Amino acid sequence: MSKHLLVGLLSILLLAGCKKESLPSTASESTETIGRVTVNNLDFTYLNSKGQITFADNNDNLSSGITLRMKKDSIIWVSVQPGLGIEAARMKLTQDSVYMINRLHKEYAATDYRFLRSKLNVDVNFDVVQSILLGNYQAQGTEKIMVAENMQHIQQIRQSLLFDYFIGLDNSKLQQLNVQDNSNGNSITVKYNTFNKVGAVPFAHDMAAQVLQKGQVTDFTLKHTRISITDASLEFPFSVPKDYKRLTFN
């Protein structure tokens, strides 16, 4: 797992973009319609999941087991395990910090979202990452709400980002998220499929994303094979061995 792949994996988790399609007239400062959306967001205290990720771009092709843990609105913890119980990488995101370990190369990174914003050229934060991974709708900013093809279509503007949420009318779950950074054209399409109940709420066990960044396309999938929510505290271990080198990015 290379430095490029670690940054690429983070870009999948943190970047937001938009499918190229004909959109209705854009939301504006005068279209504040927050509160009219019907959605079944997943609510929880702690979440624990095991699954499989795939990652492919021009430089790397990865398929690996993954363990994902969350404390709502506080911590996202990811362990990447290619097989035989061996951990290749670990990531921990908090509200203000980002940590990564590359065990194969004995390297680590400790940074913040300002660093990622400068590298990814998009305004990202913990809440955006959490909502993308969960398939949750975020009420923010100014919105325009439409209904078409059995979907609620909610369009938002957040500074330079154009968000398009498509929520199914049958289960009130997010089916697709498109967000584009209008300042540079970077984009992603995230699709959510295979809805099974977690607690009392349908949850997408399959997530597929396609990222366009600086003209390069990256494909990413996350398939949950086992997922649960609980009020019992989970652990989020993150310690760096003394002989690991701290990563710097050019």
Rank of each mutant, 00 (worst) to 15 (best):
K3Y: 04
H4F: 08
L6F: 04
V7M: 15
V7Y: 12
V7F: 04
L9N: 01
S11Y: 01
A16L: 03
K20Q: 14
S22P: 01
L23P: 03
P24W: 08
P24I: 12
S28N: 15
S30W: 08
S30Q: 13
T31M: 08
E32Y: 15
G35T: 11
G35L: 09
V39L: 00
D43T: 10
L47I: 03
S49K: 06
S49Q: 14
T54W: 06
A56I: 07
A56H: 09
D57S: 13
G65W: 14
I66G: 03
R69E: 06
I76H: 00
I76C: 01
V80Y: 12
G83F: 11
E87L: 04
A88F: 09
A89Y: 12
K92R: 15
R103H: 15
R103F: 13
H105M: 04
E107S: 02
E107P: 01
A110I: 07
D112G: 15
R114V: 09
L116H: 03
R117P: 02
K119M: 13
L120Q: 12
D123G: 08
V124F: 01
N125G: 14
V128L: 14
Q130H: 05
S131F: 02
S131W: 02
L134Y: 02
L134W: 01
Y137M: 03
Q140K: 11
G141A: 13
A148S: 10
E149M: 09
Q152C: 05
H153F: 14
Q156R: 10
S160C: 09
F166R: 01
I167W: 04
S172C: 02
L177A: 12
N178F: 00
V179M: 08
V179W: 03
N184S: 07
N186V: 11
K191E: 05
Y192P: 00
Y192L: 01
H205L: 06
A209V: 10
Q210T: 13
Q213H: 13
V217E: 15
F220D: 03
L222Y: 09
K223W: 04
K223E: 06
S228V: 09
A232Y: 10
S233N: 11
L234I: 10
E235F: 08
F238W: 15
K242C: 11
K245F: 13
K245S: 12
T248K: 12
T248A: 14
F249A: 02
N250L: 14
